[in-house]
Design a protein around this nucleic acid. Structure first.
Length: 268
DNA sequence: ACACTAACCTGCAAGC
DNA sequence: TGCTTGCAGGTTAGTG
């Protein structure tokens, strides 16, 4: 499900409710996520106060005075603020219960998500090697880093070591905006093209954040609302439909097992 | 260093 | 009505 706009939308919803709240309890119903939820998470987190809710790439960080919960939503995860009295449903694997009777509840059917604990999250192995946030990734940086690479430019920008937050939807959308075909070798994309691409990534992500992200199937924000970016998608899941710019039929291809969409006329 | 693959897991839709 | 197949928003670990 979630790429950067969905994670950021979730972060804002959680922050509004969790910041300054004390954790009363942690209820783990199913610890079998991407990695096991640490056994000692309840004891480490209970009694602590949430100081801030931050995002790094697609990771959410629930910061307390004594350490941070690192959360990832994987493909199908969502986090909602619920009342403690709301009965958990299927795939509601974990609750972080606050002192006001509300709880942060993780729902994740596919269980590709993660909930971990770290006293220094920025040094955690999952976060350590991450590339820059999109707002800090310049055209010069992308150009320099891609020299000599034969990897497809779409795979290059979806690699979190290159730049964080760009998943399958926004990679296709950004490349469409920038007029670059997804299969082009990253090392053969010019500085001028990376300049368009860097700007397109920021523009697309910001526009999606404003609309609350993209709900393809089941994404909901912390307040339970879907995102409305889907209606404005230029190419994603629009195979055969006319390009909104030139009218040509949108094409679909599969790269590294992931669907990619592009306009054969606008993108070169 | 780079690039590709398999793997983790469930749900849903389409086709037979 | 099943049953099988393919596909889905992510990322790591392993291989060559």
């Amino acid at each position: 499900m979630p790429e950067l706009p969905e994670v950021e939308t979730t972060r804002r919803g959680i922050a509004a409710h969790a910041t300054g709240r004390r954790v009363r309890a942690v209820v783990v119903r199913n610890p079998a996520l991407r990695w096991p939820v640490p056994n000692d998470l309840p004891e480490r987190l209970s009694g602590r106060t949430v100081r801030a809710v931050r995002r790094r790439g697609k990771y959410l960080l629930l910061e307390t005075d004594g350490g941070s919960v690192i959360m990832h939503l994987g493909m199908s995860g969502s986090l909602r603020i619920v009342r403690m009295s709301d009965a958990p449903g299927r795939h509601d694997h974990l609750d972080i219960v606050f002192d006001d009777g509300r709880a942060l509840r993780l729902h994740d059917p596919r269980r590709f998500g993660a909930v971990l604990w770290s006293e220094r999250p920025e040094a955690h192995r999952l976060l350590r090697g991450l590339g820059p946030e999109p707002w800090d990734a310049t055209a010069e940086y992308l150009h320099r880093r891609s020299r000599g690479r034969r990897q497809a430019v779409k795979s290059f920008i979806m690699d979190s070591r290159t730049i964080v937050g760009v998943g399958n939807i926004y990679a296709s959308e950004s490349l469409f905006e920038a007029g670059i075909r997804p299969r082009r070798a990253a090392g053969r994309v010019s500085l001028e093209e990376y300049s368009r691409l860097a700007a397109a990534i920021i523009e697309v992500l910001e526009r999606s954040i404003r609309l609350g992200g993209t709900t393809l199937r089941d994404f909901v924000s912390a307040t339970g609302e879907p995102g409305y970016f889907r209606r404005t998608l230029g190419v994603y899941e629009r195979r055969g439909q006319p390009c909104r710019t030139c009218g040509a039929a949108i094409k679909r291809l599969v790269m590294v097992g992931r669907a990619s969409y592009y306009c054969p006329r606008c993108q070169r």
